[in-house]
Amino acid sequence: MTQAIVVEGLRKKFGQREVLHGLDFAVEPGTVFGVIGPNGAGKTTTMRCLLDIIRPSAGTISVLGRDPRRAGTGLRRRIGYLPGELHLENRTTGRRMLEHFAAISGPVEPKYVNELAERLDLDLDRQTRKLSKGNKQKLGLLQAFMHRPELLVLDEPTSGLDPLVQQEFHALVREVVDGGATVFLSSHVLSEVQQAADTVAILRDGGIVTISTVEALRNAAVRQLRFNAAGAEANDVGALLARVPGVANVVLRELPGDGAAEAAVEATATLSGQVQPLVQELARLNLKNLVLEEPDLEEAVLTLYTGHYVGNGNGHKSVSHTEGAHHA
């Protein structure tokens, strides 16, 4: 099966300023690919290149096997796009706006439009200028989904949506992906991408820092560990934890026993990597209490952000610095 999106060496210059410094990535069909990065990292520019709204300065793009620059209208009918900055006409209703886009990009089943509107809790007959930001966003999502495209390109899709509608959106994404569609979405918050995506690319200053599966990120992420073990010596617990790969920041405290409770050791530590080796070791102890927190992926990503830049002397960041120097 051909990949849904293949981007090779994508560069984009606006005047003298290069904002994308040679991106390479591929998106497998039937998956959700998330791009995260701070504002100005190049997420929107990348998406606009996929839609042929702006043109790359260098590099090649293949979307659903076609070059968006040359494929024309047939390709865009197979894509649903939500712009990062959604602007809607004022003097119209959601329904009339959707009818117009359906007339261009159809065919669209009216039944599906109504079903989507109901799921997202959106009144299509209200004037668009009276819609709140969240409701405008729903309308934007609707026009992207309604013609059942093979590829969805969604720029900050959940921005402005309340948590319940976000859940509904994630369910919708899962459904279309189960139906064979591919979703390419961006966000500046990881928790959102983490929930929706199979693969995550981290973009910063117009370069990809890393591409990884959410699973791998989770493994790389750091979890907080805390437990109480009864009838153990602090030294023994310390030695046991030292045998587990990925455990660090160990703090041990002896809790003296009294009439009611046995003497115990309270331990806190951090764990990165696999959980299984830790559980095996902990099974030797008489645990009274155990807390292993959800990994903080934000934290993990932040370490990756910095880690890779330090690692690669010729990283993208230094390129952008040079560009900046030319500018100044």
């Binding site: 709204i53 209208t73 047939g74 865009r76 602007h87 006409e89 261009i104």
Partner: peptide
């Protein structure tokens, strides 16, 4: 300038 053209062009028009 009002940002509307981007969405129109993302649909199936030249």
């Amino acid at each position: 300038e009002s940002g509307l053209l981007e969405l129109t062009l993302a649909h199936s028009v030249t």
